[in-house]
Design a protein around this nucleic acid. Structure first.
Lengths: 215, 215
DNA sequence: TTAAAATACCCCCAATTGCGGTATAGTTTA
DNA sequence: TAAACTATACCGCAATTGGGGGTATTTTAA
């Protein structure tokens, strides 16, 4: 028999907290190893329970779920975090994803779906409610569009290398130093980059590179 | 009794095509209104079947699933498209999302899950296999701005205005001309921007502005 | 195999930028 | 009301950049 999936719950509402705990402990394959109604002593509580999966309420007093997610992920990247929320706000989703959440489900999700989601994240996948997924798709399209038809500017490896350093704001003399080329050579490459990108300055090149994800 | 969800299938493999068709027609609530093994006469086939949901194989001869998705979405944005794939390549997912897909599931998905996914997209949600979702999360984090908490650099309106023009690659003399300020004044603002952004050059400022969506 | 890229290097010169200042008038706010 | 901030403007100097011209190998592709 495989080991149970160890779950720690963070949930504002004590009634919900108990309900989740009961659900988990009542079903084979899952054990609730910790349940907390706030994120005080977060590190201590995580270290004591050492869960596989954390079920994290996003709306909590004090430290909120997103901050807690960040903290946990920093300390223990292998712990999977499943965010739970009543709201479906775009920026919250966005923040949660950036904080390193592995899944994002709404609170009206059925217990069956919830256990499924816990399984999914525990197995290295991600779980999302359909509405959340739809929002993520929308968000994705919003921030991704620049590369609908990625133009190929035929930059050589050296050119891409130099362009990348330029995007990091490195002045050419430093670039030359870093990649062991003469200053003049770097300048020659930069000129070539400008030609290929149809720009006339470093700022333009950098802007275009980032916007069109050239580097 | 609610109307059946009308589904049109595009699938390379005739055996799979028949299997999907049989599954759909065999279960209450779903009707297969069209099944095609390629995307020839795409528009005609869509117009004749007028589905609620399209089940689209991504790997097909001739017009591929992504192109077809784009075409269908352009013609009939209300039709939901569920992409099906054996592969789980990052750029395919990316392209499919950009083309306007509503869901993305792997072919090893069980019929139950598939019907669920069809329902999800039909109800305006999105469906994703856990592995796909995980990949999307990763992709998302890669292209999302690195700032979890967008830093407020307290730029004044003028500073933002000038920074915006810089991001467009405009040299300072041109900027001065454009906003009717003296060249030296623009330079003073630029210095102030660099201070606030903690950068030392135009390229750095531009890179930071775009990456952190300051402008 | 021959032409075209790609790689690497150099010089000059004018324009632009970065950095250090200073200064004044007006507006906010503590 | 005094202090702080904002918007505007200027100067000098050194460094960096942009644009133009070169030259020479090596690798790639037609």
């Amino acid at each position: 028999m495989p080991t149970d999936v160890k779950v720690t719950i963070f949930e504002d509402n004590p009634i919900m907290l108990d309900a989740y705990k009961a659900t988990l402990n009542g079903i084979d394959g899952y054990t609730c190893v910790g349940s907390y109604s706030n994120c005080d002593n977060l590190q201590h509580n995580i270290e004591r329970s050492m869960p596989d999966v954390v079920l994290m309420d996003i709306e909590m007093y004090g430290i909120n779920g997103i901050q807690a997610t960040q903290t946990i992920k920093q300390l223990y990247p292998q712990i999977k975090i499943l965010i739970q929320t009543v709201f479906e706000e775009d920026d919250k989703i966005f923040d949660a994803l950036c904080a390193g959440a592995n899944g994002y489900i709404t609170k009206n999700t059925s217990p069956v779906k919830m256990l499924e989601a816990i399984n999914d994240v525990n197995n290295g996948g991600s779980a999302m409610s359909p509405t959340i997924a739809a929002k993520m798709f929308t968000l994705f399209k919003k921030i991704a569009p620049p590369t609908i038809t990625p133009t190929n500017y035929h930059l050589t490896d050296r050119e891409k290398e130099i362009l990348t350093l330029m995007v990091d704001g490195m002045p050419m003399p430093k670039v030359a130093e870093k990649i062991f080329l003469s200053y003049e050579t770097v300048r020659t490459y930069v000129k070539s980059i400008y030609n290929k990108l149809h720009v006339a300055s470093a700022t333009e090149a950098v802007a275009k590179s980032i916007k069109e994800r050239i580097v």
